[in-house]
Design a protein around this nucleic acid. Sequence first.
DNA 1: AGTCTATGAATGAACG
DNA 2: CGTTCATTCATAGACT
Lengths: 202, 202
Amino acid sequence: MEALSGRVGVKCGRWNPTAEQVKVLTELFCAGLRTPSTEQIQRISTHLSAFGKVESKNVFYWFQNHKARERHHHKKRRRGASSPDSGSNDDDGRADAADEADADLVLQPPESKREARSYGHHHRLMTCYVRDVVETETMWERPTREVETLELFPLKSYDLEMDKVRYARGGGGEHQCREISFFDVAAGRDPPLELRLCSFGL
Amino acid sequence: MEALSGRVGVKCGRWNPTAEQVKVLTELFCAGLRTPSTEQIQRISTHLSAFGKVESKNVFYWFQNHKARERHHHKKRRRGASSPDSGSNDDDGRADAADEADADLVLQPPESKREARSYGHHHRLMTCYVRDVVETETMWERPTREVETLELFPLKSYDLEMDKVRYARGGGGEHQCREISFFDVAAGRDPPLELRLCSFGL
DNA sequence: AGTCTATGAATGAACG
DNA sequence: CGTTCATTCATAGACT
C-alpha cells in the first residue's frame, strides 16, 4: 500500500511520509523504539528531514499511532472460511466500522472492553500484555542490532532494556517486530529491508 | 477544514465537549487559569452543563491536558513562511536543516512557588468531582440553567497570584484567545491576561 | 461515481 | 504534573 509515496499531491494538509522516512521510522520501531523521548523525537525528525519535510509532532504521532495500533491490532483471526466478515450494519453516513475489539493481547483486564471505563481509575488497565508470542517465522530474527550502535541516538536510550521493562514483553530482549501485520507490508513493499540501525546513514 | 462542530460521534463513551464548552474553557485558559481549584472546577462544570453534559472530572482533565500539552508538543518552527506551507521547497533532498532548533520549553516556570496551591497534591484532586454525577442515563435535559448569574468565579481565585509570573512574558503580544492547537501555541506562548471574565458572556 | 482501508491527527482519560 | 494509553475523527490512496 502506500505505493510510491512520492508525495504526489502538493496539498500538504497532512504529513505524508516518504518511503525513506517510513523506512527509518519502521526500523527504529522494530529495533525496539516505542516511546521516544522528546530529544529523540527531535533527532529523529531532524534526520528524517533529509528525506522530506517533517515536524517533530509527526514523529511523535507516528510512534504513538504505531504503538497503539500494534497493540490494538486484532482484526479477525477467527473464522477462516466464508467471507472475512464485514459487519452488516449499514452505515448512515459515518457508521464507523471498528469491529468489536477482541483483546488479543490483553492479559486480563478486569474491565470488559471499552465501556465501563468510567471514572473507575482504580481498576487500572493492567498494562500487562502478553509479551511476544512465539517466533514469527515471517520475521527477521534480530539482525545484528548493535552492529554499529548508531550514533544518531544512543540507542541505549531506548534500547530494549528500558522498554522491555515497561511493557513487560521483552523477556530476553529477543523481540523484534513480532506481530504487526500492517508493518510488514509497509516494510515489505520496499527492498529487503535490512534491519540495521546503522543503515540510517549516520 | 470542517471548522467547528466536528462533534459528530454522539457516542457517549467519553466526554465530547461542545463548541460552547470548549470556548469557555479556552477563554478561561487564556485568561490565565491553569490549575483550577476544586471549587472552581465545580463552578466551571456547573456552568458548562448549560451547554451539555459535563462532569467535574472532565473539566479537571481538560485543564490538565491543556496545560500539559501547551508545554509539550514538539516544536513547530517554520522558516518564516506564513500560512500552512505553500509549495516552498517540497522536494526531497533538503527541506530545512538549520531550523530544527526547537525551544518549546521556553515557558516552564521555576516551580518555586508553584506549590502555593492549598490542596495537597496527590490523588486528592480526583475527589473533587464526585458531586455532579447526575444520572448519566438520563438525557441531561436542562439547556437553560441560570444564565443570569454569570459570575463564574471571582477570577481572583486563580487570578494573577503566581500564575501571572508564568505567562507574563513580554506582553507585546496581542494574540487573543485563539482556537489553539497546541503545536502552535507552544511557540506562541500565551496571550495577555487582560482577559476579563465578563467576556465569558456565555 | 463510490467504498474501504491505512494512517495522520487530536484529545479525553489515566497512570505513576 | 508529565507521560502514556485509548478512542475517535479525518483524509489520502488503493481497490472494485
